[in-house]
Nucleic acid binder design. Structure first.
Lengths: 116, 116
DNA sequence: GCCCTACTTAGACGAACTTCTATCTGAGGA
DNA sequence: TCCTCAGATAGAAGTTCGTCTAAGTAGGGC
């Protein structure tokens, strides 16, 4: 398949990002640009039932509970995860739409539709 | 389409990231988690011919040349762009495979093939 | 050879980030 | 009510990051 102007590349390589878009996307990327937060996101998303309580997460790291709490807050503030307290425990889950936004930026466009 | 275990989600939500993978990916993400570098990457990728010289990039920012040079170095060290001096000017281009790695992490798996 | 332009390197400084300890809130059990 | 456990918040310490100025390297023209 040859490159067709306008459909060849990942969105980031199709046209220059505006200053505003760049700032917004950089904030989202910064939230995941940390090994601990990347693992937290991955552990939450792959946990049975699609959600995990903090107690499921803390033991995997050699970090104190406040530190884990801080990283979860960064992810939640970025809109990448949601949370809810149920009784004694607080549960976290991934917000797939927001995670997908990151993917879209860098993923080469697939064939436009089933036109061929 | 219902979620099928093992094919439902973006790779990051399919199974927990190893400590090593998380560290490597976080380093890659950190390289793009900055508004200036995101715009540089976008300007380079969308420039006619697929490459841009530093002189094409500097004027778009209210930053000094050494600062732009620093950000380009971060992107190049991460393997996201390549560079070459040709005469007076230094040209930069995107390395699509490395950019695509970022996309793969967060993009939900497409249908496995044309099986349905 | 000399100078000008294009870009990079070196070093410094303030802001932001990651982690900690100490403290606080909120739920459940005796 | 009081104690304990789960988790969050506050504030401090050390580190990393983004930016600058000053100086260095490399190519091209006179």
């Amino acid at each position: 398949m040859t490159a067709i102007a306008g459909t060849c590349c990942s969105p980031i390589a199709r046209e220059p990002l505006s200053e505003t878009d760049a700032a917004e996307l950089a904030a989202l990327l910064k939230a995941v640009a940390d090994p601990v937060r990347l693992r937290l996101l991955s552990m939450i998303g792959s946990h049975p039932g699609g959600e995990a309580c903090v107690c499921d997460l803390t033991d995997a790291f050699e970090l104190t509970a406040p530190t884990i709490s801080h990283h979860l807050k960064v992810l939640r503030t970025a809109g990448l995860i949601g949370s809810e307290r149920r009784g004694t425990w607080v549960y976290y889950w991934i917000i797939p739409q927001q995670v997908a936004r990151l993917g879209e930026l860098f993923t080469p466009l697939a064939e436009p539709a089933v036109t061929g």
